[in-house]
Simulated assay, not measured.
Amino acid sequence: MLATTLSATSLLLPSPANAKGTQPGVDRVRSDQWHLQYLQIAKAHRLNLGDGVTVAVLDTGVDSHPDLVPNLLQGADAISGGTGNGQHDLIGHGTGMAGLIAARGRGGTRGALGIAPHARILPVIVTPTDGGGESDALADGIEYAISHGANIISISSVGGATQRLIKAVNAALSADVVIVASAGNRPQDAFVGYPASRDGVIAVSGVNKDGSHAAVSVTGPQVDVAAPAVDIYSTSINGTYRVGTGTSDATAIVAGAAALIRSKFPDLPAQEVAHRLTATAIDKGPPGRDDEYGYGVIDLVAALTADVPPLGFESTAATAPASTRAASAEASGDGATARGLATLGVLLAAGGGYLVWRRRRRADDPPPRISR
């Protein structure tokens, strides 16, 4: 069996409730979540909160953190040593990912807040406390998530593509489940790992507080989008909080973004959810898709409000230059997903205006906030 490894490093923080000045301490956790302001979460939450969506977190388990309890479902253990329901986490990684997706905080600006705070979390333990794991356990977790109604599967780990895991990933995609997976971290990972490398899976890289590529993040042609990945604060075990760095955190943030989209557009197929993320992303690096940012950094507000033509929409792509038509034709082959179509025929389908809109947004990137 080929092992899977977690895609983040983290530091456990004491619970603010146990520190001097409880209220200021708890508020500090929220203010330290710089990615929320960077992603304009207040505007996004006026549009949607993630109601009616279930996100399966396949990780080290999810502890019953006060900021998460309202959204935490009974899950499962794909490896031995847990409680049998996925609600057991010895190192805090899975609890952190769940918090980034759906933490509700403790009222007002207290505690940690997730991207989709009304989404439900389905915890499945697939990774032991040493951070390693087996691909078959991940396959078991994917199958459990499918059978228990997950709309989105968040995988903050990378590993090898065994036949059993490939079959499980294929089954999830066929079941119209959105899969979001981390690209991997340097130096332990040299290239985009599985399942992020699979067409149809949203592969996530990371950015710093200023929106530049995070050195920890793996690059590659499979990267679809980028999200904040450095000094990311979230929930942890025993009511505490953690700060993590890595594409694990970026992946959970993108899974939360996918939850907002699925909630606002409940009839949108999984590949259209992915397309909406890539088509509205804020372009970074060289114009168009690149190996560091994919199609760009996710834009929550645009993903929930933009008029995005559907995949396969035909218009000006037919009259585009020969080089563009050739690229579009290649992207529309068997197994093509948002990775292949989002920036070619679909974006050109808006007569060029939509592409201009995306490029103009490069000058409107949210500035970095809350430097530490």
Rank of each mutant, 00 (worst) to 15 (best):
Asp176Gln: 07
Ser64Thr: 12
Ile370Trp: 15
Gly211Cys: 07
Ile91Lys: 00
Val356Gln: 13
Val55Phe: 09
Gly296Phe: 03
Ala350Val: 08
Leu304Phe: 04
Gly94Tyr: 01
Ile152Trp: 01
Val346Gly: 03
Val356Gly: 11
Pro128Arg: 10
Val178Asn: 05
Ile121Tyr: 04
Gly114Glu: 04
Leu355Ser: 10
Val201Cys: 07
Arg186Phe: 08
Asn151Trp: 03
Gly107Glu: 02
Asn238Trp: 13
Leu11His: 14
Ala303Trp: 00
Met1Asn: 12
Asp140Cys: 09
Ala227Glu: 08
Ile253Pro: 00
Val192Lys: 00
Asp27Trp: 13
Ala42Met: 11
Asp283Ile: 02
Gly108Glu: 11
His88Leu: 15
Ala190Gly: 08
Leu165Pro: 03
Ala203Gln: 05
Ala279Cys: 08
Gly82Lys: 05
Gly335Arg: 14
Ala350His: 10
Pro228Gln: 09
Ser248Phe: 03
Thr109Tyr: 11
Leu6Gly: 02
Arg242Gln: 15
Asp290Phe: 08
Val207Glu: 05
Phe191Lys: 05
Ala229Gly: 12
Ala322Gln: 14
Ala226Asn: 04
Pro14Tyr: 10
Arg106Leu: 15
Ile202Leu: 12
Ile166Cys: 09
Gly131Trp: 01
His148Glu: 07
Thr95Gly: 03
Val225Ser: 04
Val273Asn: 02
Val207Pro: 02
Asp32Thr: 11
Val177His: 03
Leu36Ala: 05
Trp34Tyr: 12
Gln33Asn: 10
Pro195Val: 06
Ser64Cys: 12
Asp89Cys: 02
Lys264Phe: 07
Gly94Arg: 05
Ile79Asp: 00
Gln33His: 10
Ser154Gln: 10
Val297Leu: 14
Ala270Tyr: 08
Leu90Arg: 09
Ala250Cys: 10
Arg361Gly: 10
Ser217Pro: 02
Val223His: 07
Ala196Glu: 07
Arg104Tyr: 10
Ala183His: 04
Asp51Gln: 12
Asp290Thr: 06
Ser332Glu: 14
Ala336Pro: 12
His93Tyr: 08
Val55Ile: 13
Asn185Cys: 09
Asn48Ser: 15
Thr162Asp: 04
Ser328Arg: 06
Thr95Lys: 02
Ala270Leu: 06
Val180Ser: 04
Gly211Tyr: 02
Val301Leu: 01
Ala8Arg: 11
Pro367Arg: 08
Asp290Ala: 08
Ile91His: 01
Glu143Val: 11
Thr54Phe: 07
Asp334Met: 14
Gly111Leu: 06
Ala322Trp: 15
Leu355Ala: 14
Asp59Cys: 01
Val62Phe: 00
Ala270Ser: 12
Ile179Gln: 06
Val53His: 03
Val216Leu: 07
Gly193Thr: 02
Ser205Gln: 11
Ala229Asp: 11
Thr245Lys: 05
Pro66Ile: 09
Ser315Pro: 04
His93Phe: 12
Ile153Glu: 00
Asp140Ala: 10
Leu348Gly: 09
Asp290Arg: 05
Asp283Arg: 00
Arg339Gln: 12
Gly294Ala: 07
Ser217Met: 00
Ala17Gln: 12
Ser323Ala: 14
Gly244Gln: 11
Ile370Asp: 11
Thr251Pro: 01
Tyr233Phe: 15
Thr305Lys: 03
Gln40Lys: 15
Val62Leu: 03
Val297Cys: 07
Gly21Met: 10
Ser205His: 06
Leu72Asn: 01
Gln188Ala: 12
Gly132Phe: 08
